[in-house]
Amino acid sequence: MAEVDQKALLQFLLRMGDNTLVLGHRVSEWCGHSPILEEDIALANTALDLIGQTQLWLGYAAEVQGEGKSADDLAFLRDAWDFRNVLLTELPNGDFGQTMMRQFLFDAFQSVILARLLKSSDTTVSEIAAKAIKEVAYHVERSADTVVGLGDGTEESHSRMQAALDYLYPYVGEMFLSDDVDAAMAAAGVCPDPTTLREEYDALVSKVMANATLAIPANAYTHKGGRTGYMHTEHLGHLLTSMQWLQRAYPGCEW
């Protein structure tokens, strides 16, 4: 195994952990407000899985960082510019259709990347992937079914799902961007370069969208700035305002 640049590894782990942290938070916002009890329970299961994955990714990130911090410190005590999640995950829930579309677009990415991470040269990474991939296999099946069901449902559900896809699709490209961190991870065999994942992702997404009778926007622009932290959306700050409130207002307490 090549020498792994610890700074780059930390960035990679923050990207993985912040994605699940921020999306898990968004999904948890639904609890008690879903269209039907069965969906409410299912969404909570998804959020619980994402929070669990966050504990693993950020726990390892804290270890690599080596400053004696915990996963909670990373989640609750960093400000927006230090977050490394893709913009897609921080976008507001919108209606149930938009939430499920965002979920599917992310689940599909996770299912592709986690399969590769099983063979990561970093054993902690491959162990986390091995646990998460089972959860994600179910998530992607469920979110795909829901996207298909609503896309191919009534006229209203179809048009809402098309609107959701049109809104969210410009945020898909960011998941496949590549920079120095990715190059370092690829060179060390920790994680393949994201650009190499796109083909498999597109095949999966096109199949589901075809079944859902939805049209993938052509030539969609790619919004970026989340995974580098250069420029998040305005939404992230509000999310962190609630998420971090207690830790910020009463620092140093045990909960």
């Binding site: 069965e38 329970i41 299961n45 079914d145």
Partner: peptide
């Protein structure tokens, strides 16, 4: 018991509701 639009979704809902 639970509600679902079809058998496939009933199985998924059962997984989420009854095997937590």
């Amino acid at each position: 018991s639970l509600h679902a639009p079809d058998a496939e979704m009933a199985i998924k809902n059962a997984r989420d509701v009854y095997t937590r």
